[in-house]
Structure formats: C-alpha cells, structure tokens
Simulated assay, not measured.
Amino acid sequence: MDINVQSENKLNHTSIIHAKDLSFKYPNNDYYSVNKVSLDIKRGQCLGIIGPNGAGKSTLISLLCGLLKAEQGQVDFASLADEKPLSWQASIEKYVALIPQEYAFYPELSIKQNLEYFIAISEPNRKKQKQLLEQALNQCQLTHVAKQKADSLSGGYKRRLNIAIALSKSPEVIFLDEPTVGIDPVSRQDIVDLLEQLKAQGKTLIYTSHMLNEVEQLCDDIILLEQGKAIAVTDISNNQRQNMQINLEFFADKINASFIAQLNSAASPASEKDSSNEQHLRLKVADISQLQQIMQIVSQDMSSIKSLHFAQNSIDQLYFDAYKNTQSSKDVAC
C-alpha cells in the first residue's frame, strides 16, 4: 500500500485524508475484511462508518490510522500543519489519535496518573505537560474524580478516560471506534456532546457506531460497509433533503381517484400506495419545490384527507434500504 503526505492543494482543498481502493485480508481468511474501499475525509468534519458486526469498520479504521498495512490501495494525508511536511508515520504520531473500543489505560492507576503517563510520552516539556493534564481533565469532566483508580470507575467515566488520553496529545484527527458502547443513555449523551464540541473546535472525527441516532447527530458524511465493501456513501444533509416523504390517509368514503392521480403525478416516480389499504398513500418528495407543488394540490381537497404526516428519511432508513438492496442482489445472484 502507498501512503503519502501531500500539501493540501494537491488533494481536494477541503480534504485531510483520501483513501482509494483499500483492501485487506487477515492471515488464514479466504475473504477480504476491507475490499476496495475509497473515501474522502474532509477537514473539520465527522465521517461516520456504519455497518453490521463483521462488516470491516474496525479494520478500516486500523488501516487509515496506520495500525494495519493494506495489501492494496493508497492513502493520501494532507499536511496537518503549516510547517514542512512530515513523514506519514511522524504525522500519525503527532496529529492523529485513536480511541479504541477496548479500554486503553492502566486500571490500577488513577485517572490523573494515567493521563500523566500518556502525556509524558508525547510531550517532554513539564510545563506543557501540566497544561495538557488540566485541559484533558476539564474537557472530559474528570477533574472531580482525578484521584480515583481507573478500575473503580463506572463505564461512562472509563469511556471519558479513554477519550481524555487521546485528547492529551492535542490531535487534529481523531479516530473513534464505538466510543459509547456499553454505557447508560446519560453518559452516552455527555460523550456525544463532548464530540460535538471537538468538531466545533475544528477537529476531524472518524467515527464508528451501531447507534445510528448518534451518527445522524454527529456526522456530516457516512459510509455504510457490508462484508468489507462500501455499499453506500452519502452526505447526511443531502440524504435528508433528498429523502422526504408525505404519508396521507384518506377517509374511506371520500377516496377520490382523480385527486390521488394528481398527487402521484406531482410526486417522485417512486411513490407508493399501500396495496392492502387504498386509504393510504406515501409520496416521495425530491426537493422543496416538489413539496410545495404537492401541498398546493392537497389544499384543493382537504376534506378527503384524514391525516397527513411529513417526514425525512433517517439514517436508519438509509441503512435498512441499502442492506436490503444488497441482500436482494445476493438472492438474484444465487
């Protein structure tokens, strides 16, 4: 695999990492855990990597941050600072942090001792070490438990310590492999809020999770993996805008075929009628102008409409649709 560090103007001007056709197969496996995956990670944004267990999410993160070496493909890093470009390995060590699924600290040490140890690895200056320690404790809301042993902490605080250790080196790019797994909803939201703050500070986040509501809240772009392949790549805001729908229910005694035909003609071609119940109509909407046209038609015969519900397709729907399409293709191939 080729890994290059380039000035940003040689990549897309907003890109910080660009990967092309990455492939990786573990020893003794007869299949690729990552299979010709390409992606573009923009500076200051959050990329979500989603998919079922075994899809290749953790392997892809390991390839991007240098823990694994791909058999094929290329990764290009933009220069991560206004200085002479560093080697790929030096760029990783200085500007990139990984927050793994597993706890990455010493359980017998306190929070403060853990942070002091990891900070000393990357920062030799004692004064800066103290500043980084205070910053990490404050940022992750750990100051009041700093003297507690790590193994005595709740799951939520252990996850915060994992994040604090990564932040203690002041990274520009942060890889997060399911950072909220196994914790309660309040702790999960605290961590999501922290990640939103990091994003607002201009940090670049690459994030895996099975919690699709988190992905929708945090991420700008997503990539959906299935058996090592990228089966969907999308911009979340575009997905929401381009996947609007109106669900209509008509009074049984006031179904107007001509009115329904008008609505269907104004909507996107993929609109659906519930075959089991003629009272229900689902209209797919491509854009705002189409939505306005449909609502204008609706206003002409409001008396026949029992209920109207407007919705934007969620990431859940994108996930299920893409996965269903993949399974259908497999069935056809069989």
Results as ranks from 00 to 15, higher is better:
residue 296 Q to E: 12
residue 296 Q to S: 10
residue 296 Q to I: 00
residue 297 I to K: 03
residue 298 V to S: 01
residue 298 V to A: 00
residue 298 V to E: 06
residue 298 V to T: 07
residue 298 V to F: 04
residue 298 V to M: 11
residue 298 V to P: 02
residue 300 Q to P: 05
residue 300 Q to K: 15
residue 300 Q to L: 12
residue 300 Q to S: 15
residue 301 D to A: 13
residue 301 D to Y: 10
residue 301 D to C: 08
residue 301 D to E: 13
residue 301 D to N: 15
residue 302 M to Y: 13
residue 302 M to L: 15
residue 302 M to G: 13
residue 302 M to F: 13
residue 303 S to R: 14
residue 303 S to E: 13
residue 303 S to V: 11
residue 303 S to P: 07
residue 304 S to R: 12
residue 304 S to F: 09
residue 304 S to Y: 12
residue 305 I to L: 07
residue 305 I to D: 00
residue 306 K to L: 12
residue 307 S to G: 05
residue 307 S to A: 11
residue 307 S to V: 05
residue 307 S to D: 07
residue 307 S to W: 06
residue 307 S to Y: 03
residue 308 L to Y: 01
residue 308 L to K: 03
residue 308 L to W: 01
residue 309 H to S: 12
residue 309 H to I: 10
residue 309 H to A: 11
residue 310 F to T: 01
residue 311 A to F: 05
residue 311 A to D: 11
residue 311 A to M: 08
residue 311 A to C: 03
residue 312 Q to M: 08
residue 313 N to A: 13
residue 313 N to V: 00
residue 314 S to Y: 04
residue 315 I to S: 06
residue 315 I to H: 01
residue 316 D to N: 11
residue 317 Q to F: 09
residue 317 Q to C: 03
residue 317 Q to L: 09
residue 317 Q to H: 13
residue 317 Q to V: 12
residue 318 L to V: 15
residue 318 L to F: 05
residue 318 L to A: 07
residue 318 L to C: 01
residue 318 L to H: 09
residue 319 Y to V: 02
residue 319 Y to F: 15
residue 320 F to I: 14
residue 320 F to W: 12
residue 320 F to R: 10
residue 320 F to T: 13
residue 320 F to K: 06
residue 320 F to S: 07
residue 321 D to T: 11
residue 321 D to Y: 00
residue 321 D to L: 01
residue 321 D to A: 07
residue 321 D to F: 04
residue 322 A to Y: 02
residue 323 Y to I: 15
residue 323 Y to K: 15
residue 324 K to H: 13
residue 324 K to L: 08
residue 325 N to Y: 01
residue 325 N to R: 05
residue 326 T to S: 09
residue 326 T to F: 05
residue 326 T to R: 09
residue 326 T to K: 04
residue 327 Q to R: 03
residue 328 S to N: 13
residue 328 S to Y: 06
residue 328 S to Q: 15
residue 329 S to D: 09
residue 329 S to L: 10
residue 329 S to R: 07
residue 329 S to I: 01
residue 330 K to Y: 00
residue 330 K to D: 00
residue 330 K to I: 04
residue 331 D to A: 09
residue 331 D to H: 10
residue 332 V to H: 06
residue 332 V to C: 02
residue 332 V to D: 04
residue 332 V to P: 00
residue 332 V to R: 02
